[in-house]
């Protein structure tokens, strides 16, 4: 066993404090009244307004039309996050399966074409994507929000590398065992990829959950607003007096953090396995 090293612990404690303090501060501040925050700045101690604030955030109808509540925004974000994550896992697995296991002309150039799109952020193609979806009358729909972002170079790349590391003999054994392409995929590759799928799922869920620019472009109907937009609109729209509702913004931010946290906690063992393990 290693000796206890106070200095190492000090560094870890400092690092943890550095990362956690802002989160704690946001949570504590969300339990105070907006005016208090306005006068005294942020808080590190709990206040008395917590329950009321969260209830208000979740149920109060806001926006211009008065139809969007916090709960609705949580639901929209969840649909977006899950749709993204599931869709990306499925699409990139199928793409990688095709690239690795089927011999077709230009497979390698096609892969590199996909791979180079890794270098391009979404913002580069955001206007063309918007136009396509707009012509398909997909603005203000869930599928319009999700589908254009489903193709994932990162996911395809990860799965391709993973499939390449699967021994060829497994495919050969499966062929002799009478498994066609579909059965080999579903019966052997998918179960083997479970840790990998979990890793990609988490990354993509958080990515989808945190989308801001794309939903803002694609949705004008407030019923499709996501949490990320809600936080922003609170500060702009929900101004009752002259003081912005800081506490509500903080409450929403805290709420926005919980689902990704839940997903990470639920999948963390598989996640680590997926990123580190190569034992097959």
């Amino acid at each position: 066993m290693q000796r206890f090293r106070p200095f190492d612990h000090l560094i870890l404690l400092l690092g943890a404090a550095f990362l956690v303090t802002p989160v704690v501060m946001a949570f504590m501040s969300s339990t105070h009244a907006a005016t208090e925050i306005h006068m005294n700045g942020l808080f590190l101690s709990p206040g008395g307004e917590g329950m009321a604030t969260y209830e208000k955030v979740l149920t109060q109808k806001g926006g211009f039309t008065g139809t969007v509540t916090g709960a609705r925004m949580v639901m929209n974000s969840t649909i977006l996050g899950l749709g993204f994550a599931l869709g990306k896992v499925v699409v990139s697995m199928l793409a990688a399966y095709g690239l690795v296991y089927f011999r077709f002309r230009f497979a390698t150039p096609i892969f590199w074409m996909i791979f180079t799109t890794l270098l391009l952020p979404l913002e580069v193609r955001i206007m063309p994507s918007y136009q396509v979806m707009s012509q398909l009358h997909a603005l203000n729909t869930y599928w319009g929000l999700i589908i254009p972002l489903l193709a994932s170079a990162t996911g395809t790349f990860y799965f391709r590398q993973f499939f390449k590391s699967v021994p060829d003999e497994l495919l050969e054994a499966a062929r002799i065992d009478g498994a066609g392409p579909v059965r080999f995929f579903l019966g052997v590759l998918v179960p083997l990829s479970r840790p990998m799928m979990a890793a990609i799922f988490i990354i993509m869920f958080v990515y989808g959950w945190n989308q801001y620019l794309w939903p803002m472009l694609m949705t004008t109907d407030e019923r499709f607003f996501t949490l990320m937009r809600g936080i922003k609109t609170i500060l702009q729209v929900w101004i009752g007096s002259q003081i912005p509702d800081y506490n509500e913004a903080f409450a929403l931010a805290v709420l926005a953090m919980l689902p990704p946290l839940g997903v990470v906690l639920a999948f963390q063992r598989l996640f680590i396995k997926g990123l580190t393990e190569s034992d097959k």
Binding site: P167, E169, L170, A173, I176, D177, V188, L192, R194
Partner: peptide
């Protein structure tokens, strides 16, 4: 014919068992 249609069974050097 496909391997599956040849009525043969094969044993591999690295066993090639399905790990899951």
């Amino acid at each position: 014919l496909e391997p599956a249609e040849r009525d043969i069974a094969m044993v591999f050097q690295n066993y090639a068992l399905y790990p899951h």
